[in-house]
Computed example of a mutant assay.
Amino acid sequence: MTPTNSRHWVLSNKPTGLPILDGPDATFQLETKSLPPVEDDQVLLKVLYWSNDPAQRLWIDPNISPDRLYVDPVEMGYTMRSYSCICEVLQSQWTNISVGSIVMADVGWCEYAVVPAGDCIPVQPIAGLEPTHYISLFGLAGVTAYYGLVDIAKTGADDAVVISGAAGAVGSNAVQVAKHVLDCKKVIGIAGTDAKCRWVESLGADICVNYKGTDFQKHLGEATNGFVEVFFDNVGEEVLDFMLTRVKKNGRIAACGAIASYNGTVTGGIKNWYQVIAMRLQIRGMVVTDAIPTGRFSAIVDLLKQGYRDGKIKATEQGMTVVPTSFEDVPKTWMRLFDGRGSGKLLTQLV
């Protein structure tokens, strides 16, 4: 039976700290909305999976002015957005997409959606891989890793590189790209448990340091003995501050993320800014969607696919944390981004 309604999680309060899941101040609210008829050149989609990304927290932050945000914010009363979703086509009024096809689309936190067919990207199967790899290894996470290392930090074989958040979606892909695609002379990861560090090393890192372990700065200092040319930062705060002292003169820093401060938990800020001046460090912020208009995004996807075929990039079980989730629990799964559970790309699977 064709659905006529769809449940949505909409933004009901913009959080100043950690998002709230229950009570009168809850960040999100569950609503049911009517589906419009499928018109010419449109498709009806059933959402199967969607991406969970730390950047979504910035889209709902009341302390960030819209003119200082790289995308339009999610406004209260609107469906919470997601970077990308894997969907099944239930109805199609476009000849190039057939019913039953699996596509990627940006439809947000809903069960069903009617969208322009031209906004959908058909998922082309790769032997041995699930469609979910199109929003992890060959999607935003993988492209961000490659774009940050190559286009932003100009990383090459003569470089030693440190990657924070190395067990996360972007970081784990960056480890593989740095070691096996770019042939960097040394790759150092930073992660939050000993088990995650061992997994990061299995991906190719020469060493991974547990930032929650004892004597973290001592161990990271030893790992970066002689200093490093490149720092790929997904975390910010204290890790970034210390790494300013470990990047050598004229070194490059790709500022990809700052998850340590996204929920308002700033602990001390940057104390070592003098290092930027004295060492002539180059720090460049990055937003991977900048690569879309130039065609660079799709070109990097092709490079990543070739890296997989050549055996340089692995699709590991730990590279994705897929959480089967009832629609009522969608915000709870998203919140796992901020508690350190899981590894690799966090995906919601609607059940």
Rank of each mutant, 00 (worst) to 15 (best):
A278K: 04
C197S: 07
R284Q: 15
G204W: 05
K186Q: 15
Q275M: 14
C256S: 03
R246D: 05
I188L: 07
T214Y: 06
G189V: 07
Q275Y: 08
N250I: 10
I270L: 15
K248V: 12
F297G: 02
S202Q: 13
V276K: 09
N225Y: 10
D290Q: 12
G213H: 07
W199R: 06
V301S: 05
D215S: 13
H219G: 01
E201K: 00
E201R: 00
C256M: 10
A174S: 09
G264H: 10
T294L: 09
R284P: 00
V175H: 04
E201G: 02
A291R: 02
I283R: 05
D302F: 01
R252W: 08
G236E: 05
R280E: 11
N263K: 00
T265Q: 14
G269C: 03
V181C: 14
D206R: 01
C184E: 05
I188R: 01
R246K: 14
R296L: 05
G269Q: 07
S298V: 14
I188D: 04
L182A: 04
E222W: 09
H180W: 15
P293H: 10
K185E: 05
T294V: 00
Y274R: 12
F227M: 15
V230M: 01
L244E: 11
V301L: 00
G192A: 10
D241G: 02
C256W: 02
G268F: 09
A299C: 02
E237A: 15
G295F: 06
I292L: 11
K248F: 04
G268L: 09
K196N: 08
I188G: 03
K248L: 12
K212E: 04
G189Q: 03
E237G: 06
I300A: 10
G189E: 01
I300H: 06
G192I: 09
V175S: 04
T193S: 15
A278T: 14
G226M: 13
F231L: 11
M243N: 14
S261N: 14
A260K: 01
K196G: 04
C184M: 10
M243P: 01
S298R: 12
G213E: 06
K218V: 10
M279G: 02
E222I: 13
L220F: 11
N234D: 03
I253G: 02
F216D: 00
A255P: 00
A191D: 05
R296G: 00
Y211C: 07
N272G: 06
E229N: 10
A258K: 08
Y211Q: 03
A223Y: 03
I292N: 05
F227Y: 10
G192R: 01
L182D: 03
T265E: 14
K249N: 14
Q217E: 15
E222C: 07
A174G: 07
T289L: 15
F231S: 02
R296A: 06
E238W: 06
I188K: 00
T267H: 07
L203S: 01
N234S: 09
A178H: 02
Q217L: 05
R198P: 00
N272A: 07
D233K: 04
I207M: 04
H219E: 14
G226R: 11
I207V: 15
V288P: 02
